[in-house]
Computed example of a mutant assay.
Amino acid sequence: MHLNVFTQCSPSPQFKGMWRLPGDRTATGYRSLDYWISRARQLEAACIDALFFADIHGVYDVYRGSWAPAVRHAVQIPSIDPALLLSAAAAATRHLGFAITYSTTYHSPYECARLFSSLDHLTGGRVGWNIVTSYLRSATANGLGEYLDHDERYERADEYVQVARALWEESWDADAVVRDAERDIFTDPDRVRQIDHEGRWFSVRGPHQCEPSPQRTPVLYQAGSSPRGIEFAARHAEVVFLTLADPASGAEPVAALR
């Protein structure tokens, strides 16, 4: 069994209103490095495997036709980008893993590959990617990209992961970085290659901008619960979120996914 702790970089990560309790630290702690470093050390001491950060792109604005209720009650707003915390928390720990949510709908795969290679280097191979297909229409209103229907988002995500994995796994040989000072060769270009991906959604030449990181490919998480989401998770993920009422009723969906 591997234990992950689920949180968000926002006040009251799951239980809304908890910030109102005397002694609660999330209301200001969510934006403090000291807070997250303390939490990371606490979790490592408890032998937790990973600290997992959920995230969204956009603001909830459907209830009462406005974003005001979400803002009023701190429903995932305000929030900060969890990717910026990981290096500091990793420097304060030795074994704790970290996973962050990153959207295949509103970011490019080349950018994604560089971010996770960077985090994998800086954490010493302790990073995971929660692959999400963003669903909030408010993200489009904020200029993040075109809103896509449910299954189309997963079609894009399939190709997105294919591109990211090609950059991580195929672009650089393990021994490409030679650091030959005498010949003035840091990286042997014959051991680095383009991926030359041409698809429906993406055109990515490469090569990848980062040398291979300790894991090369981060641990892949996925939380889709629809039939298309489960199909995606079965194809790509190493860790899958499922909401199961009890072991008996959960056995069938787990078996189907495997």
Results as ranks from 00 to 15, higher is better:
R258L: 12
L167H: 06
R205H: 11
T243D: 15
A251K: 11
Q209A: 15
L51P: 09
S79Q: 08
P227W: 06
S249V: 13
E44I: 00
V254C: 08
E155L: 14
T105H: 12
R165E: 12
R31L: 04
D184Y: 03
I131P: 11
A245N: 12
F53T: 00
W36G: 00
S134E: 01
A70S: 10
Q162T: 13
A223D: 10
Y106G: 05
R193L: 08
Q14R: 13
T140W: 09
A166K: 12
Y63M: 07
G224W: 02
F241D: 07
A248S: 08
F186G: 03
Y60H: 11
H150D: 09
A46I: 02
R20K: 12
Y106L: 08
L84Q: 11
V219I: 14
C210Q: 13
A164V: 15
A27P: 00
D184R: 13
V177W: 04
G250C: 10
S249T: 15
V192S: 01
S32F: 02
G250N: 10
R183C: 07
S32P: 00
L257R: 06
H150T: 08
F241R: 13
W19D: 01
D180S: 07
W67C: 06
T105I: 06
I80L: 05
A234W: 05
D158C: 14
W67S: 13
A251W: 03
A45P: 09
S118Y: 03
R114S: 10
A233I: 12
G250A: 10
L85A: 03
A46N: 09
T187D: 04
S79G: 07
L85E: 01
S138Q: 05
P207W: 11
H208G: 12
V75D: 14
L96D: 06
D55A: 02
L84H: 06
T105F: 05
T123F: 00
R228V: 15
W201I: 05
R235N: 08
A68V: 13
A50R: 06
A233M: 07
V177I: 13
R64C: 01
Y154P: 04
S213T: 06
A176S: 08
R72K: 10
L167Q: 07
M1A: 13
L86Q: 01
Q194T: 12
W129V: 03
S203D: 15
A45S: 14
D49T: 13
A89Q: 05
Q215F: 10
R41I: 06
D175F: 14
N142E: 15
